[in-house]
């Protein structure tokens, strides 16, 4: 009887299989990428050479070229993208959640989220740039659309995790569907969803920095042009400024997220739980 076989040996077999696949994959990749010992040994010294030439960073020069403007442009792009993502995804998430939406409407909306999520922001920007022209709006739009997918998915999962009790209460009072959502579900999930928005903003700041590299506005364009002329001290300055921007946004947004979340459930570090949730590894 199949059902009586203990699961452990089967698991072990799966692990050996995985290990074999990993090994084969590694060999295949090393051969395909033409990784030779010489290249491997030279790479660190080449990298070190560049790093060395970035010091001291030329803050003055990049400041004159308006790097501060560019950094803020990256933040604006990320913010607009996040706002577009949040505003569009919130109502859709209610239509996509299993516990509050019928099958015929929730399945197509989930598919939209999946489709949108599967296209990287950069690829989306590649499509939009010929239409909108080079500039921050292409980046904002690409980030916004991609964010609709991720924020929508996280939001409907939060809605599905919510307590049914208040919804039942609204239903028993004779409330309509919109009232069930507004009063039964929304107050429960809003702190979680807001913290997801902020988390997405943190990710979007990185994404918008990168988008500049293909001409969609922001600090990335500055890095590309300085690297093109091999102005390494300027490159160093741009890098440090980018790091400062990313860390500042992370810190501020993280502080707000912790404040929002701390009111809801005191039992666990919801912040870490959120990170794990967001990375797709749901442990609950």
């Amino acid at each position: 009887m199949l059902a009586t076989i203990p699961s452990k040996p089967q698991n072990k077999r799966l692990r050996w299989l995985l290990a074999a696949i990993l090994l084969a994959g590694a060999v295949w990749s090393i051969m395909g990428l033409e990784v030779t010992l010489a290249r491997l040994l030279n790479a660190p010294s080449d990298a070190w050479n560049i790093l060395h030439r970035m010091i001291p960073p030329a803050f003055g020069e990049v400041h004159q070229r308006g790097v501060v403007e560019k950094v803020f442009e990256s933040v604006y792009i990320a913010w607009i993208g996040t706002v577009i993502g949040a505003v569009v995804s919130l109502p859709l998430a209610f239509l996509a959640a299993m516990n509050v939406s019928p099958r015929w409407i929730r399945v197509p909306i989930r598919q939209i989220f999946n489709v949108v999520r599967a296209v990287p922001e950069l690829i989306m920007a590649v499509i939009f740039i010929p239409i909108t022209g080079l500039g921050p709006w292409a980046g904002g739009l690409a980030i916004g659309i991609h964010s609709v997918g991720t924020l929508g998915k996280w939001a409907y999962e939060a809605i599905e995790d919510s307590d049914d009790g208040p919804v039942e209460a609204v239903e028993s009072c004779g409330g309509a569907w919109i009232s069930e959502m507004r009063w039964g579900v929304l107050p429960q999930v809003m702190p979680t969803i807001t913290s997801y928005w902020l988390f997405r903003f943190e990710i979007n700041v990185r994404a918008s920095a990168v988008l500049g590299m293909i001409g969609a506005g922001g600090v990335g364009s500055e890095l590309v042009s300085q690297l093109q002329f091999r102005n390494f001290p300027e490159v160093g300055a741009v890098l440090i400024i980018t790091i400062a921007m990313v860390l500042t946004v992370d810190t501020l947004s993280g502080m707000v997220r912790r404040r929002i979340i701390s009111g809801s459930e005191p039992t666990k570090d919801r912040n870490q739980e959120a990170v794990i949730d967001l990375t797709g590894i749901r442990t609950r």
Binding site: L223, L227, D250
Partner: peptide, 29 residues
């Protein structure tokens, strides 16, 4: 590690392309 993570992945790619040449090798690094 925090600083490494604060630099977006494609920034790393562009830097390494400049340092060790265009191609998949830089990308892998």
């Amino acid at each position: 590690m925090n600083i490494v993570r604060a630099i977006p992945d494609l920034f790393w790619a562009k830097l390494l392309v400049t340092a060790i040449g265009i191609g998949a090798f830089a990308g892998s690094w």
